[in-house]
Design a protein around this nucleic acid. Structure first.
Lengths: 329, 329
DNA sequence: TTGTAGGCGTTATCAT
DNA sequence: ATGATAACGCCTACAA
């Protein structure tokens, strides 16, 4: 394997000079820059990132913490896009990434996780799917031993940024659109996981809408479960004009129930997953660019690792109408 | 961060002694083992894997090469399970893992990829979704610079193992079951991607079956595309008794077509993805344990990295009948 | 059985 | 502007 030493020799300069050129340090003459770069080219030198990580504490490797809930493989689509977006961006930014799952840290304390991450020379982490109940990861964040970006949770401190869409407004918008299109008054709202950060925001959005439009609303907790949404719809759907769901999966459950009950009610979902296409009906939903969000998070993490302060970042969303033929390709 | 040096000091021994204990070297007295382990406990020492990787070439980091085809997000489920299975097992085996996507290496030569992997101190790779056309990765494998495990491709050499189910037999079995249950004679077989390793095996399985049962068969290339399967079914389905598909996704396309044509034909798929449940019909399919396969691959990779020779590994499969209520949970 | 010392490929701090 | 040289944390002959 060709190392920086070989490059130095080949270019006729010192190792440290090569390093300076590679890392764009100031105080290097144009002439030696050219020499070094030429040597790099000729030898096909690629710096060893492991050595770099060991040597400099600030090089910084990144860990992705993904919450894979085994029950709903359907949303693997979302996690996959998160991972893909993050890793691609990381490669672009020259950051090393390892992917980890929540399940690996079951029954571990924040300290144990911290030590593990440190043993991997991790300095920055991105957390996907954090729930309010996960005290361990919350502690990890508040300890601030790592630079941290959290997706879909309102946690910001000196070393922590949050990235998410405006769920309150998005829920408001998609429900409003559906309700106006179908001229509804009585809303059945099937919310997400209890005490979820996102769940609460979306409920607020619905409350805003109910107030603004003078609607009535029944809220039931669907726990992001298709089955629960189905049962709730079976039970309450008949006397409502519209079923608004906090996720596409639940929207599918609701729609299946309505079909079985043989009544029509407009349904809207949230997330814009491809799976929606397979239910065979049209539905309004909020489309999130998961890859883009994740890439954005990686950019933000790099900024944090370069000394920026944590901040709250809101990304855009769009309303979509998905149907079978949009998907098939 | 507590290092091996601290442990050595705390235990009153030399650094190298600690290292020997940690790596289970022979010729260490029981007494010092206890001393060292006690120190490790008390200091909560976790060895730094980055330093270990840099120091010893044989520690070995692993790269996962995942083929994410943007068209069929539906099968993210499969890739996610692959990744999850591999990373979990790697953690268990104390191997470091990085995840990479085919797309990152577009327009790169095998040499460039090799250099990149070496720059990451990668010594072993697992490849998911390799196609016959991917000459670059094939060269990477045949160069044998890395220990390598390939999923679903028949490539074995000194440093390369392959892991897959017996696709030929699986295709035979699932089709036979469906055909017997429905007493069919004329088969429409919608195959997968042309020149795919797996595709060819499955076609052989169908040919075996046709011979054994005295059937007639029309084979059409569906390219793993739901839309193509749909079109093929529209065109040829009417005059056949059964539609056998080389993937669940295509089975869904075929079934949607049949529903639209308002005729009934039994359909069977392949893979056992959860998505099957959403189509609202029952279907026979081959269930693969993707997590298990991937974990197996990681184990095999470790063996290769420890000096074993490459070999061909066949993993089990099961036949399943999936329907809506099986999935919803 | 235990300890010493050199090396893995970089980065960073000094001199020069 | 450039070059020695000491870390970084660990592994591993080799010496004791």
């Amino acid at each position: 394997m060709v190392s920086i030493k070989d490059v130095a020799r080949h270019a006729g300069v010192a190792i440290s000079t090569v390093s300076k050129v590679l890392n764009h340090y100031p105080n290097v003459s144009e002439e030696t820059k050219v020499k070094v770069n030429k040597a790099v080219e000729e030898l096909n030198f690629v710096p060893n990132s492991v050595a770099a990580a060991l040597s400099s504490k600030q090089a910084g490797r990144v860990a992705l913490l993904v919450n894979l809930s085994s029950k709903t493989q359907a949303i693997d689509e979302i996690n996959m896009q998160y991972i893909h977006g993050a890793i691609n961006k990381a490669m672009e930014l020259n950051l090393d990434v390892i992917t980890l799952f929540f399940s690996m840290f079951k029954n571990r304390t924040a300290e144990e996780i911290t030590r593990y991450l440190q043993s991997q020379s991790i300095t920055g982490i991105i957390i996907y799917g954090l729930s309010k109940e996960n005290k361990v990861l919350q502690k990890l964040i508040s300890d601030q031993r790592f630079k941290c970006v959290v997706i879909d949770a309102p946690i910001v401190n000196e070393n922590t940024s949050s990235v998410w869409i405006d769920h309150r407004k998005a829920q408001y918008d998609v429900a409003k659109k559906t309700i106006i299109e179908n001229n509804c008054k009585r809303v059945l709202y099937i919310s997400g996981k209890k005490n979820g950060y996102v769940t609460d925001e979306r409920i607020k959005g619905m409350e805003d809408l109910v107030r603004d439009m003078g609607l009535t609303m029944l809220i039931r907790n669907g726990d992001f479960s298709e089955l629960q949404a189905r049962n709730i719809t079976m039970r309450y759907g008949k006397n409502k004009d519209v079923v608004v769901c906090a996720s596409d999966l639940m929207a599918i459950g609701a729609m299946k129930a309505l079909i079985e009950m043989n009544i029509f009610r407009p349904v809207c979902g949230f997330d814009g997953i491809i799976l929606m296409g397979y239910v065979g009906k049209q539905m309004n939903t909020v489309h999130q660019d998961f890859e883009g969000i994740s890439a954005k998070a990686m950019e933000e993490l790099q900024k944090l690792m370069n000394g920026d302060k944590g901040k709250n970042i809101i990304t855009p969303y769009t309303l979509e109408r998905m149907k079978y033929m949009d998907i098939i390709c």
